[in-house]
Simulated assay, not measured.
Amino acid sequence: MQVLRGFPAQAHDACVLTIGNFDGLHRGHQALLQLLTDKAREMRLPAAVMTFEPHPREYFSPADAPARLASLREKLLLLAAGGVDRVHVCRFDARFAALSADSFIQDGLIRGLNVRHLFVGDDFRFGARRSGDFEMLLNTGRANGFGVESMPTLIIEGERASSSAVRAALADGDLDHAACLLGRPYSIAGRVVHGDKLGRQLGFPTANVQLKHRRPALSGVFAVGVEGLDDQRLPGVANIGIRPTATDAAQARLEVHLLDRRVDCYGAHLRIHFLKKLRDEQKFASLDALKHQIAQDADAARVWLSLHQTRLLG
Rank of each mutant, 00 (worst) to 15 (best):
L79A: 07
G147M: 05
I105N: 11
E135V: 15
A65E: 14
A171E: 12
P216Y: 10
V256N: 05
A301P: 00
N239E: 09
D133Y: 10
D248S: 13
V221F: 07
I242M: 07
R142Q: 08
L137T: 01
A295D: 09
G173C: 05
G241R: 01
N144R: 09
L182F: 07
E53T: 09
V303P: 00
L307D: 12
M50Y: 01
M50S: 08
A179C: 13
I19W: 04
A94G: 13
L259T: 01
G28H: 05
L109I: 07
K291P: 05
G82W: 12
D174K: 06
F124P: 04
H12N: 14
A171L: 01
L275N: 03
S219P: 00
E53C: 13
E74C: 08
T18Q: 06
A97I: 12
M1Y: 13
V87K: 07
H177T: 15
R191W: 02
A70S: 14
R5M: 13
C265Q: 04
K291I: 02
N239W: 02
M43A: 08
C180I: 13
M1I: 04
F274P: 02
L4D: 06
L154T: 13
R41S: 14
N114S: 14
A189V: 04
F124H: 14
H269C: 15
N239A: 01
T245S: 12
D102I: 09
F134M: 00
H194I: 10
A249R: 11
A63L: 15
L198S: 08
P56I: 12
H88T: 02
Q251G: 06
A171D: 11
S164H: 06
G108F: 08
L229C: 03
V303M: 02
A285V: 12
G141H: 14
L202Y: 12
D93T: 15
D299M: 14
L270E: 05
L33G: 11
G127A: 02
L234E: 03
P46K: 02
T310N: 02
Q296H: 10
F60T: 15
I242D: 12
Q309W: 11
H194W: 07
L17H: 03
E227T: 02
W304R: 00
S162R: 05
G20H: 10
A223K: 00
F124D: 11
A14N: 02
G83P: 13
G203E: 08
Q10M: 12
E58I: 08
S71H: 10
A165W: 13
Y59I: 10
G220K: 05
R253E: 07
V224C: 11
D133G: 11
D107L: 09
N208E: 09
N139H: 14
E53D: 13
L278M: 06
L118K: 05
P54D: 13
S103M: 02
E135Q: 14
G241M: 06
G203A: 11
Q282P: 07
G147W: 05
A249G: 14
A252H: 15
V237T: 00
